[in-house]
Amino acid sequence: MPKIVLVEDELQLAENTKLILEINGFECFVANKGQEGIDLITSINPCLVICDINLDEIDGYEILRQIRLNPQFLNLPFIFLTARADFVDKRKGMNSGADDFLTKPYNARVLVETIRARLELSNQKKESVGIEIKKNAIDVFYHVSNHEYLTPLNGIINLSEIALDMVRNKQTFDIEPLLEGIYTSGNRMLRTTRKLLWYNQLSNAVNPWKNVLGANSQINVIKFLQDIVDSATKSSLKIFDINIKSNVTYLYGYDESLIQIMFMELIQNVVNFADSNRKVYIEARLENDFLVLIIRNHYSENYTLTTEEIKPFYQAHNPKDMNGTGLGLYIVKEWVESINGQFEVKGENQLFDIVIKISINA
């Protein structure tokens, strides 16, 4: 049953409209004040909103403005129900992102037909967007598979073959670099597989990290960060000057292997895309029982990137030159938000900042 939020301060009109909608197969939730309407929309997550313009304190235009600030409600069908319906009102409403206008007193049949038409159009848009996203995801996945699976897999097979020949010929004195290469390629495939599995769960509204805790774990932050940097840069052909500082001593209660994976994605992003001729700064600050981790580096080219653009399979550089899955920052962002933390990125004029904020106690 489609859910509709009605924001109307005329109590009798609100009750009558609610009754009409319920008779016609809709579930209607009513708010009589502006802020109450915003809260109701946020909590109910309706299929459509009907809102009066003339409300006390917060009018309909402001409700629409605030709702559209939330990416979740960017395409939510929004109908103004108002006694004022001159050209100026309509233009202002449409410029604010309204989908339709109905003038009071309204005709019940017209109201229902307008709602159904808007819901049908909304469903068509969702289907169209869903198909395009799947198509793009599949296209990118095939490209990623070529690079992120076949390249390290070939490395594992070829290096293993050489190592086996050396063992058979009892020439194992120089075998360590081969084993390191196999280990590095295997880890690369593991990282790719893990991210794709997590992405699959997230796209199906499943939290991959639910109930993942480290019990009484205690993580030494500065040592932890240094170990991750050493590991990430070990196999890189580029040499980085990375400055690490922290006034946070420990993190408590986190699963160390999981948080290591997440922080590694952040550092790996630096290794993959940063200008190695510029210093990289990593700082961990303690702010009111929160760890604020700041990673600042310079891109080797001029890219623009914002937090809102962090989506699956998206990279700031040319996607035709895909290096990696385009899932790393997206996965970290989803994990941070799943533990009620904050995640922010900003890339502009070659300067790239990543900021995450998480509680020091999981």
Rank of each mutant, 00 (worst) to 15 (best):
N54C: 05
L119Q: 00
D86I: 07
S122F: 04
N200F: 14
A205D: 12
L190I: 13
V270L: 06
A85Y: 10
H317R: 07
M262T: 01
E308V: 08
L121P: 00
E348T: 06
L102T: 05
G155Q: 07
K195V: 08
P208Y: 05
I4Q: 00
K126I: 03
D321C: 10
T42Y: 00
L159N: 09
L6R: 04
K135V: 08
L179C: 04
K357D: 02
D174K: 09
L74A: 13
G214N: 08
A215H: 12
W335E: 03
D59G: 10
Q66W: 09
F141T: 11
E8Q: 01
D289K: 14
I219H: 07
N211I: 02
I331G: 03
D353H: 08
F141Q: 10
V270P: 10
K210A: 12
S235F: 07
E309K: 14
I244V: 13
K195M: 15
N169L: 12
A85P: 04
I295F: 11
G324L: 04
I53D: 09
K104P: 04
E161M: 04
L213I: 11
D241K: 15
R84M: 15
N220L: 10
I282N: 09
F101L: 06
N349K: 11
G181P: 02
I133R: 11
N247C: 06
E337S: 02
I157V: 13
N349P: 01
T151E: 13
F273Q: 05
N220P: 03
E309C: 03
I115R: 01
P312F: 02
A98V: 06
G214T: 05
P2T: 00
N123H: 11
T184Y: 05
T17Y: 04
V271I: 11
V144R: 09
R191E: 12
R191L: 12
D89E: 15
N123W: 02
T249I: 10
M189C: 08
L121Q: 05
E62K: 13
R68F: 03
V280W: 07
R91K: 15
L202G: 00
P46R: 00
I23R: 12
H143G: 14
Y330E: 08
H298T: 07
L179S: 03
L76A: 03
S203V: 06
I219N: 08
L179W: 04
V292K: 13
N187P: 05
P46G: 00
K92I: 15
D39T: 09
Q226C: 05
V30Q: 03
Q35F: 12
L74D: 12
V280A: 07
E15Y: 13
L202R: 04
N146C: 09
P177K: 00
E36Y: 01
T325W: 07
E57H: 14
N158M: 06
W335F: 15
S96D: 11
V7H: 04
Q201F: 12
T304L: 06
Q226T: 14
M264I: 01
V140E: 13
I50L: 15
I4R: 01
E265W: 14
L102A: 02
E265F: 15
E348N: 10
A98I: 02
